[in-house]
Amino acid sequence: MPRCAVLGSPIAHSLSPVMHRTAYEVLGLHDWSYDAYEVDEDGIGPFLAGLDDQWRGLSLTMPLKRAVVPYLDTVDAEARAVGGVNTVIVDVEGRHGFNTDVPGGAAALRERGVDSVEDALVIGSGATAEAMVASLRQLGLRRVTLAVRGMDRGVELAERLEAGSALSDRITGSSATPLAVEVTGIGPDMPRATQVVVSTVPAAAVAPYAQMLATRCDVVFDVIYDPWPTPLARAAQAEAVPVASGLDLLAHQAAAQVRLMTGREIGVSLLRDAALGALTTR
């Protein structure tokens, strides 16, 4: 029986099992299984060491996306560029790391009609913000402003982004314009106009500025999906500004994981509907 799973800590909230199990059912992969395991940084090494030949793939959530890297035999270019892995494929040649969050974020924006981006405001300084900048970079991002709660972390992320942009271009052979990064606080000094506003922080942190932000951009991407809509999403909808959500990101990255793990394609809308259904019953 081919086995897959999602690992993380905490893990009980994960929507990955319902999405992947839905994919297996639709694809007729009735002998495949997908489970959830509570695993922290100290446990990831032993868990990987215990995998047998039934295992095909792992989805990883926090806090394992960076912690897993030393235990892998290969890491693809996108995962190397952002320094994090959310997917591990297991085969006879070893354990291989990928990052489907990056293409998933770009695909979620394309679904909202965004095919190219030159400038963006990204709110937050964590791993999700870093992955979202990489997603925007796939759409041509040249300038980004980071709006952060802690300036020290913001500056550190800005330095990583600029270095990571150069590394990614070298890895992929791209001749794209180097990424320009500015850092500001979350507040009224955030840019007065930008193509895309991406929020990766709790909804309450952005709520006081939701209306201001919604009137200054062409599209909003709020990675929060529960509860939904967030104040930012609600303000954008009131202004007829297209909105992408964390559920869109989750479904797109999960579809890419299914493809990597099974070699089969699955519709994103099927996975999104499955996740939404699970949310409504919580």
Score class of each variant (00 low, 15 high):
Leu213Arg: 05
Ala214Pro: 01
Leu167Ala: 14
Ile11Arg: 04
Glu38Cys: 13
Arg21Leu: 00
Ala180Cys: 10
Asp226Pro: 05
Gln195Ile: 01
Val92Thr: 15
Leu7Ser: 05
Pro231Ala: 00
Leu213Gly: 08
Glu78Asn: 10
Leu27Ser: 03
Thr61Val: 08
Arg282Lys: 10
Phe47Cys: 00
Leu247Ala: 01
Glu265Ile: 04
Glu130Met: 13
Thr281Val: 15
Leu271Asp: 02
Val26Cys: 08
Ala180Gly: 07
Val144Cys: 03
Val39Gly: 02
Ser116Asn: 10
Gln211Glu: 15
Glu162Ile: 14
Val268Gln: 07
Trp228Gln: 05
Phe47Gly: 08
Arg143Val: 12
Ala275Arg: 06
Tyr37Ala: 12
Thr74Lys: 09
Tyr24Ile: 02
Met190Ser: 00
Arg80Phe: 10
Asp226Lys: 09
Glu182Asn: 14
Ala36His: 01
Leu179Ser: 09
Ser14Asp: 03
Ile224His: 05
Gly84Ile: 12
Ser59Ala: 14
Ala254Val: 07
Ser16His: 03
Arg112Asp: 03
Leu247Lys: 00
Ser245Cys: 09
Asp226Phe: 06
Asp152Val: 15
Val181Gln: 11
Ile89Cys: 14
Ile11Trp: 12
Val114Arg: 02
Phe221Met: 01
Arg112Trp: 03
Gly57Leu: 03
Asp189Ile: 09
Gln211Ala: 13
Gly124Pro: 08
Leu139Asp: 07
Asp76Ala: 12
Glu162Asp: 02
Tyr71Pro: 03
Leu260Ala: 13
Leu249Arg: 11
Thr184Glu: 07
Leu29Trp: 08
Arg234Gly: 08
Val243Met: 05
Asp119Met: 01
Ser135Ile: 04
Pro63Tyr: 03
Val117Gln: 06
Arg56Glu: 08
His13Cys: 05
Arg80Cys: 12
Tyr225Met: 01
Ser174Ala: 15
Glu130Tyr: 13
Gly28Asp: 07
Gly126Trp: 06
Tyr24Pro: 06
Arg112Val: 08
Gly94Asp: 06
Gly57Val: 06
Ala214Ser: 12
Leu161Met: 12
Glu159Cys: 09
Leu121Ser: 01
Ala180Ser: 14
Val39Met: 00
Gly8His: 00
Tyr37Lys: 11
Val155Ala: 13
Ser165Met: 05
Gly150Val: 12
Leu271Ile: 01
Gln257Ser: 05
Val18Trp: 02
Tyr225Pro: 02
Val88His: 11
Ala158Arg: 15
Asp73Asn: 12
Thr280Leu: 13
Ala106Thr: 03
Gly173Ser: 09
Tyr225Leu: 00
Ser9Asp: 14
Ile11Phe: 01
Thr145Lys: 08
Glu41Lys: 14
Glu78Leu: 15
Thr172Cys: 13
Ile11Gln: 06
Val223Gln: 03
Gly84Pro: 01
His20Val: 06
Thr280Pro: 00
Val102Gln: 04
Val114Ser: 03
Val241His: 03
Pro242Ser: 07
Ala233Thr: 02
Lys65Asn: 02
Ala81Arg: 15
Gly267Val: 09
